[in-house]
Design a protein around this nucleic acid. Structure first.
Length: 439
RNA sequence: GACCCGUUCGUCUAGUGGUUAGGACUCCGCCCUUUCACGGCGGCAACACGGGUUCAAGUCCCGUACGGGUCGCCA
């Protein structure tokens, strides 16, 4: 029986969750899930000065929002805890003792340095292939500090110890760690342990190719729910940034991503954000939602825009499901349903004003609406009214749309008529007629 | 500067010696739709450059250029 796969995500809580970090987490998570292994969340909070509670929570909530659950770590079980490095001092001290016993560390200015073996180090990276770094020349690769003069341990040491202690089989991390790997390999070799397999993934860049930093659009994971993205769409999008299923498919729910994922599909070159495509992908995921699920997803955005959803909301939301790319667009798309009367989009009103027959047609439409026995087929009344006035139904459709919604585009007229109801529809038509006459 | 990784349409990518270099986003047409959007069809658009190797190179090798990464008592 093969050793069960164990991967981890090991962020340090010094800011918000970065989208590059999220993708690293995603790939590690996918690899673990794909292979029936475990995914561990370890918080590397050794830099007390820079750690914040807020940053820690951003990591947890970001991962949860994306749907990346962890088997061991904060608020989860696990035999390899604690999962915060700040609570693992005893473990590091013990391993440091072991390292001292090998005679490979020496004191320097109160700190402890690890003496590298002066030889070429070759790693077999699962993504980069075979990479050799020459450690022969000490001036290029000075012995590294593993323990500071204040007694604390540096990243390289704790990271290696934890990966060993937590029995990692695969370390999937950003390419910025590639040059650290020989250091880690040397440490592990000195300790007489077996290293995990490494996979270094290329970084994500801004749309213009520049390095993505904190302030850049899309850098922070928490920005995505704010902008109206679905977690599944974000996961789908970042997975496609640097990974390919090797065929033409590209629309994946999480479950299928797990199925299709493999390290071989990871690219070697940094990729750039393509905002148009991320929004398109979000729209595709939105389209796949049931109308109920869509309404539910849209509700918070509607509320926070100050709109008060009525009991008609399910129908209202359904009418705009295929009109928006982001959930944050929903409030604007449905606002016209919920307000008193019509507010005209200037361009729409102008277009309507240019139509000389509109006021007359609309006025007689209001009359025939009023005469309808019921509201089951207002469309027949539209056709009849137009015909009676010697016009085509199409000549009445556009004015009616503007009269009801104030806009040139939007949901099907049928849906608008049904949702608004007879009284409100008539009211808006008459409001429009008088607006037109007074103009 | 040294070392490491990379380079196919504007962007994300398929492609593992012989392809009309494929798909997707964007953009532009047309169709569907009495709106918009969705959907369908079509179009524009790429192998960074220079040398090799080979009957044959986007695919292999070497340079150059460009991009990225790393060179801490940060992680």
């Amino acid at each position: 029986m093969p050793t069960p796969v164990r991967t981890r995500f090991a962020p340090s809580p010094t800011g918000y969750l970065h989208v590059g970090g999220a993708r690293t987490a995603l790939f590690s998570w996918l690899f673990a899930r794909k292979n029936g292994g475990q995914f561990i969340l370890r918080v590397e909070d050794t830099d007390e000065a820079r750690n914040t509670e807020e940053a820690r929570n951003a990591i947890f909530s970001g991962l949860r929002w994306l749907g990346l659950d962890w088997d061991e770590g904060h608020e989860a079980d696990g035999d390899c805890g604690p999962y915060f490095q700040s609570e693992r001092q005893d473990i590091y001290t013990r391993w440091f003792q072991k390292l001292q016993d090998t005679g490979r560390v020496y004191e320097d200015d109160g700190a402890w340095r690890f003496r590298f073996e002066r030889k070429p180090i070759t790693m077999h990276d699962l993504v980069c292939g075979e990479v050799t770094i020459d450690y022969t020349d000490a001036s290029n690769t000075p012995d590294m500090v593993v323990r500071r003069s204040d007694g604390s341990f540096v990243f390289h040491f704790v990271n290696v110890v934890d990966d060993l202690e937590m029995k990692m089989t695969h370390v999937i991390r950003g390419e910025d760690h590639l040059m650290n790997t020989p250091k880690h390999l040397q440490l592990i070799e000195a300790l007489g342990e077996t290293p995990p397999a490494y996979a270094h993934i290329p970084l994500i860049m801004n749309a213009d190719g520049s390095k993505m930093s904190k302030r850049d659009k899309g850098a922070a994971v928490h920005e995505y729910p704010e902008r109206g993205f679905l977690p599944a769409a974000v996961v789908n999008f970042i997975a496609l940034l640097g990974w390919s299923p090797k065929d033409d498919s590209e629309l994946f729910p999480l479950s299928e991503l797990i199925d299709r994922f493999s390290l071989e599909g990871i690219n070697r070159s940094p990729s750039r954000f393509d905002w148009d495509k991320s929004m398109w992908l979000n729209q595709q995921h939105l389209l796949k939602l049931t109308p109920q699920a869509f309404a539910e997803a849209a509700l918070p955005y509607v509320r926070s825009a100050g709109l008060d959803p009525t009991d008609q909301f399910p129908a209202i939301a359904a009418s705009v499901q295929e009109k928006v790319q982001l959930l944050a667009e929903v409030p604007e798309a449905i606002r016209f349903y919920l307000r008193e009367g019509v507010e005209f989009d200037p361009a729409a009103l102008e277009k309507l004003a240019g139509n000389e027959s509109a006021p007359t047609l609309l006025a007689s439409l209001a009359t025939s609406f009023r005469a309808l026995p019921d509201w089951s087929s207002p469309k027949d009344a539209i056709a009849a009214t137009a015909t009676a006035a010697g016009a085509k139904p199409g000549q009445l459709m556009f004015p009616l749309r503007v009269a009801l919604s104030g806009k040139t585009g939007g949901p099907d007229l049928d849906a608008i008529l049904t949702i608004l109801g007879r009284d409100e529809s008539i009211r808006r038509i008459e409001q429009t007629v008088s607006t037109l006459q007074n103009a």
